[in-house]
Write a protein that binds this DNA or RNA. Structure first.
Lengths: 146, 146
DNA sequence: TTTGTATTGAAAACAATATGCGGTAATTAC
DNA sequence: GTAATTACCGCATATTGTTTTCAATACAAA
């Protein structure tokens, strides 16, 4: 059920950089692509192990580095010090609402914000690569809890 | 040359929380307030040591925790995994342009972006605490270098 | 002062991230 | 197809940045 498009992107990246097509890399990609939300490497590795029990942490770690370089994933820093991965492919133009209570990350469309950021970057002669917008606060659920 | 307003804020926080007025805390505050830009704890500690050579890393670390809780500083994650401190007092409503080459952080006014974020948060019934906007890219200097 | 306790400084613990190494497996050359 | 090459895996361990422990000290209240 893995999207062939992302597989192709990774395969292309591997070919272009004279790397090797190993099943581990595509195993990790498989799990990552079919995951919803934002996972740390450790969390992601737990998911990978469920489907591919023989997977090692290092492989998940290094596979994600490749997937990141291939442009399919990006690191974001959540509410704790741990970074998590977000999907980049077909997930353009979104910002994050980060709950400081439960750590949940909600995505929202931020195309308007990006337009503003592009203007600002231009003023500063800054060549933008990636845009981010984050609001820290309390999510609906955690408000109810109190 | 230390702003008395920030000193008062810290002193108030200390009084309200039954902490103690130690010179170490105000030494660190002094250096932090008179610093421009964004420093990691380690970088900040280097600055502190220049003025107060006897200062220990632990003290700088813990003093910044207190200063943070007093609402005078906030952590931001820069281009590497290291967090840095930014000024909160009299530094409202700004976003960051982060250079992925040299790590430099440029601040910009983002009051318009915050307005948009407030709207979005309301739609999601999300209670906002702090707003952030970040653009990763290449700064003017680093563009020239290439 | 005396007493109680928060704070300090040094070192060590911790957690997250990253790497070195020897064996293994994917490619390439033949 | 087979051998040669070399990137990669998995394990263990190193590294880095951050936090905590603990005994000694300094602050604040009586």
């Amino acid at each position: 059920m893995m999207s062939q498009e992302e597989v192709k992107i990774l395969a292309d990246y591997i070919a272009e950089n004279a790397l090797r097509n190993t099943h581990q890399r595509f195993d990790v990609l498989d799990v990552f692509i079919n995951s919803e939300g934002h996972f740390s490497i450790e969390e992601l590795h737990e998911l990978v192990k469920k489907k591919y029990p023989q997977a090692s942490f290092s492989s998940t770690f290094r596979a994600m580095q490749v997937i990141e370089k291939a442009g399919l994933a990006a690191r974001i820093s959540g509410v704790d010090g741990v970074f998590r991965f977000e999907h980049l492919y077909k997930h353009q133009n979104h910002g994050h609402l980060v709950c400081t209570q439960c750590g949940q990350i909600i995505e929202y469309d931020n195309s308007k914000i990006i337009k503003l950021q592009k203007k600002i970057a231009a003023v500063h002669h800054f060549e933008p690569i990636r845009f981010g917008a984050k609001v820290r606060g309390i999510c609906r659920n955690c408000q109810v809890k109190r």
